[in-house]
Design a protein around this nucleic acid. Structure first.
Lengths: 115, 115
DNA sequence: CACTTGATAAAGCTACTGCTTGACTAATGG
DNA sequence: CCATTAGTCAAGCAGTAGCTTTATCAAGTG
């Protein structure tokens, strides 16, 4: 029971976000579309390397590429970020509930039974 | 400006969560402490492999290991999960704000200026 | 047409990951 | 004391990730 999110998608998404350059690109795209060349400009690596990073983001659904003249404008697809948040929040929820029960239990022990 | 979270920590955390076995261990630990042996039991891999996975989770602050008799009870440290959620929510917030402005702008274009 | 620009494809190289096995340590129990 | 249990350490190996360089393609521009 509980929300089950596709494991392969989570693998790919977390792996994609585990790279600073790719997180940077995601943050940049959250402010609007950009071409590969524009995205590559700030980095000391080749355009090809950045294109490969975008490929990783595209494969896990975080980014999509369109076509306009010779350029391939990239845009963020933020919906899938939701699945990562859902997974994290689920673990935190279970842990928090357990801590609540634990505190209640400890309080019960401390306070002698009133009967 | 805005919240800046330590990049190395995010690298390590997202990389740790990019593995199904490790996500599984995190989920298991959200329901309570467990020893290495207990955590390893469900998996077809060696105890050493699971111990290494726990090491990865420990290095990024998601899990801590205590000592009790011969065992090393592991427990979840869910606070650091917060930084991952914060990073994701920041990108989504920026994107959502931009979409709001875009909608407003499009509405302004559609509706002729009233003056 | 040839040339430039924006981008992908493919091959190769280094470094790291996930796993294995074998050896070791540390605490408990006969 | 020796044996067992729980776990770590270390070496090795196959597979992958992140880059590079070279080559190629596709869409303007002179």
């Amino acid at each position: 029971m509980g929300i089950t999110i596709d494991d392969e998608r989570l693998d790919a998404m977390f792996a994609a976000l585990a790279d600073r350059t790719r997180r940077d690109i995601v943050a940049r795209l959250s402010t609007g579309e950009a071409t590969v060349k524009e995205l590559a400009a700030p980095y000391p690596m080749s355009l090809q390397a950045v294109s490969q990073h975008i490929g990783v983001l595209e494969r896990c659904g975080l980014v999509s590429r369109g076509r306009h003249r010779q350029t391939r404008p990239c845009r963020l697809e933020p919906q899938v970020l939701e699945s990562a948040v859902l997974w994290i929040e689920e673990s935190r929820r279970v842990w928090a509930e357990r801590m609540d029960r634990l505190e209640t239990h400890l309080a019960d022990l401390q306070e002698p039974q009133q009967r």
